[in-house]
């Protein structure tokens, strides 16, 4: 391999020849992403058109400017839906960040390896289940008459709560179950980040007289800062999505029962 020179040389034929295999390797991935991600993105222009499907996706459609948006904004349920989305997304992002970080910190304090491994595996389990399956599971568990959670609540003297039907509790149910499903997975990323922190830093902190709390606060957390910010940024992409899969399942299951009249 030719020695790399720091100065910027011109892009020559020899460069191209050397890099050609790398470009070729990127080709299949690039093709898929162009077709299945960028073409639909370009397809978003239909938002500004009076779209008639029979004319085709990029056909000769009539442009209507922001009329479609106006229509949506004036729908009666829009304000409430927007409010719900923002509240749900906000709490999911905050709790989806705080809970795994705290869990990772707690797990990191465990010295008994077998316990650590077992807890980690169990907590990781819900991540592998689809929302469809979990929808079914929670429907049974949160059921007001036969569900185990409500049995516990009534046994403790409370009144049973219809978690999936009562609109006072639906948002909270969504948030809690989402955090429940994903915190084990999130914690793995943070645990990896903790393991990556230089142990010399802890030695230095100890010599300076820091106890465990201060070590966590001044060494572990700053060491995780980069990964926390990264995960935060990535989760921001889901704000207006607010977990479509989950809501779709939980809500439709409830409607299905309602309409079947059981």
């Amino acid at each position: 391999m030719p020695k790399k020179t720091k100065q910027k040389s011109k892009y020559t034929l020899s460069h191209f020849k050397r890099e050609l295999p790398l470009h070729l390797m990127l080709l299949p991935g690039l093709a898929i992403i162009l077709i299945f991600s960028y073409v639909p993105m370009a397809g978003l222009i239909i938002a500004f058109q009076d779209f008639i499907p029979s004319k085709g996706m990029f056909g000769d459609q009539e442009w209507v400017g922001l009329k479609n948006f106006e229509y949506v904004f004036h729908l009666p349920g829009f304000g409430q839906a927007m409010k719900n989305t923002v509240i749900i997304a906000f709490w999911k992002i905050i709790l989806g960040l705080v809970v795994p970080v705290i869990f990772a910190l707690l797990l990191n304090e465990v010295r008994f390896i077998k316990f650590k491994k077992t807890v980690q595996t169990i907590v990781y389990l819900p991540y592998f289940l689809s929302w469809v399956v979990l929808g079914g599971i929670f429907l049974d568990i949160l059921s007001p008459s036969t569900g185990i959670i409500n049995q516990i609540i009534t046994a403790l003297g409370g009144k049973e709560i219809f978690f999936l039907g009562d609109n006072e509790y639906f948002r909270e149910t969504l948030i809690v179950t989402d955090v429940w499903k994903n915190f084990g997975y999130g914690a793995i990323v943070y645990l990896a980040a903790i393991l990556g922190i230089d142990t010399d830093l802890y030695e230095a902190a100890k010599i300076d007289g820091a106890n465990r709390w201060r070590q966590t606060w001044h060494v572990t957390l700053p060491g995780m800062r980069m990964i926390i910010v990264l995960m935060m940024v990535l989760s921001l992409g889901n704000v207006l999505n607010a977990g479509f899969d989950q809501v779709f399942n939980f809500y439709c299951i409830y409607l299905g029962i309602l309409f079947s009249g059981v």
Partner: peptide, 11 residues
């Protein structure tokens, strides 16, 4: 960013 449901379906 993604194209979303309807363009994806049309594609």
């Amino acid at each position: 960013f993604s194209g979303g449901l309807i363009p994806g379906y049309l594609l």
